[in-house]
Amino acid sequence: MEPRHPLRVTAVPAPGSVRVLGLAGEMDYDSRDQLRRALAAALEEDPSLLVLDLSGLDFCDSSALDELFRARHDKPGVPIVLAAPRPQVRRLFDLTGIGQVFVIAESVAAAIEHHGLTGTGQG
């Protein structure tokens, strides 16, 4: 049995009122409460955009997708973009059609640019 890689969530610096959360490890049933709290805290700040950097995510299951849908439902005015998913996570997204509901970007920068928020937050 392969060792588990617990979910790690980090806030990543971003321009203006954009919030970026870096997700790494495994996003699954066991980590759903941690994910729910992290999403709720980020959305509580009422960002103009929430980007989830999935470049460090090794695994994602349907319970994690449920939390993404919950966050979208709880704060419908804040766009949530899924950025840089690895191939195995991208495959889940393709199979479930999550790209019909969420924007999936190739990188955090592309996610921010997609929403016209390319400013540096300076000046």
Results as ranks from 00 to 15, higher is better:
Leu50Ala: 12
Leu35Lys: 04
Leu68Val: 04
Arg4Glu: 15
Ala14Ile: 04
Ile104Arg: 00
Gln122Val: 14
Leu39Thr: 05
Glu26Leu: 05
Gln100Glu: 14
Ala71Trp: 01
Pro15Gln: 12
Pro13Tyr: 08
Arg8Tyr: 00
Ser62Thr: 04
Gly121Leu: 11
Thr10Gln: 15
Gly22His: 13
Ala24Glu: 15
Arg90Gly: 15
Phe69Arg: 06
Pro15Asn: 11
Ala24Ser: 15
Ser63Gln: 12
Arg36Phe: 06
Val18Arg: 08
Val101Arg: 05
Val78Ile: 10
Val103Gly: 10
Leu54His: 07
Gly97Ile: 05
Pro3His: 08
Pro13Trp: 03
Ser55Asn: 11
Thr120Met: 06
Gly77Leu: 06
Ala38Phe: 10
Ala84Arg: 00
Pro76Gln: 11
Leu7Thr: 08
Arg86Ser: 08
Pro76Glu: 13
Arg8Thr: 14
Leu50Cys: 11
Met1Glu: 09
Val18Asn: 10
Phe93Thr: 00
Arg4Lys: 14
Leu52Thr: 06
Gln34His: 12
Glu44Ile: 04
Met27Pro: 03
Ser31Val: 07
Gly22Asp: 11
Asp94Ser: 11
Gly123Glu: 13
Pro13Phe: 06
Asp53Thr: 02
Val108Phe: 01
Arg19Asn: 08
Pro79Ser: 09
Leu82Tyr: 01
His115Ser: 09
Arg36Pro: 02
His73Ile: 04
Glu67Asn: 02
Asp66Thr: 13
Phe59Asn: 01
Ala38Lys: 11
Leu50Glu: 10
Val51Thr: 07
Phe93Leu: 07
Gln34Tyr: 00
Leu95Gln: 09
Ile112Ala: 04
Arg72Tyr: 08
Val101Met: 05
Asp30Met: 11
Leu49Ile: 04
Ser55Arg: 12
Ala109Ser: 14
Glu113Val: 10
Ile80Asn: 05
Arg37Trp: 10
Met1Ser: 14
Gly119Thr: 12
Met1Phe: 08
Val12Thr: 14
Phe69Trp: 01
Glu106Val: 12
Asp74Ala: 13
Thr96Ser: 14
Lys75Thr: 13
Ala41Asn: 11
Asp33His: 13
Leu52Glu: 03
Thr120Ile: 02
Leu117Trp: 04
Glu67Val: 07
Arg86Pro: 00
Glu26Asp: 13
Thr10Glu: 15
Ala64Phe: 01
